[in-house]
């Protein structure tokens, strides 16, 4: 349940960005959550009211876009979704892989009213 701490940190990051842009109200945040980021989207949604409580984003809607955890096997080169393959290559069983996408949590858009 580290999602609350991550969202608290995100609030600080957004606070700095909107100050730079001279914005005071944020109506919606669009966040990309990678399947390999270690964040659980359901817990992010549940934690958001607490993370935004008494901040300038108390009434801001949180929209999450889940990014698939895509990796490339360093053994045979197969590209696959690591989450549904138990972190090993479905072809050769190799566990050494390069992450292509889905290991990050990114602020994609800030919708300002």
């Amino acid at each position: 349940m580290h999602e609350l701490g991550v969202l608290n940190s995100m609030v600080h990051t957004i606070e700095r960005i909107v100050k730079e842009q001279n914005v005071t109200e944020v109506s919606k945040l669009v966040i990309e959550v990678g399947e390999l980021s270690g964040m659980v989207p359901r817990y992010l949604e549940q934690s958001w009211p607490a993370a935004s409580y008494k901040t300038f984003m108390e009434n801001t809607e949180l929209e999450l876009i889940v990014i698939p955890g895509i990796v490339k096997c360093k053994g045979c080169g197969r590209v696959f979704n690591a989450v549904y393959s138990d972190l090993s290559c479905p072809d050769c069983g190799c566990r050494d892989m390069e992450i292509l996408e889905g290991d990050d949590m990114i602020i994609k858009e800030i919708v300002c009213s």
């Binding site: 940190s9 995100m10 960005i17 966040i31 949590m105 602020i107 994609k108 858009e109 800030i110």
Partner: peptide, 11 residues
């Protein structure tokens, strides 16, 4: 309303 395209890490 305006949309700020950010693409930056939450951290």
């Amino acid at each position: 309303f305006k949309v700020l395209e950010i693409k930056t890490s939450v951290f």
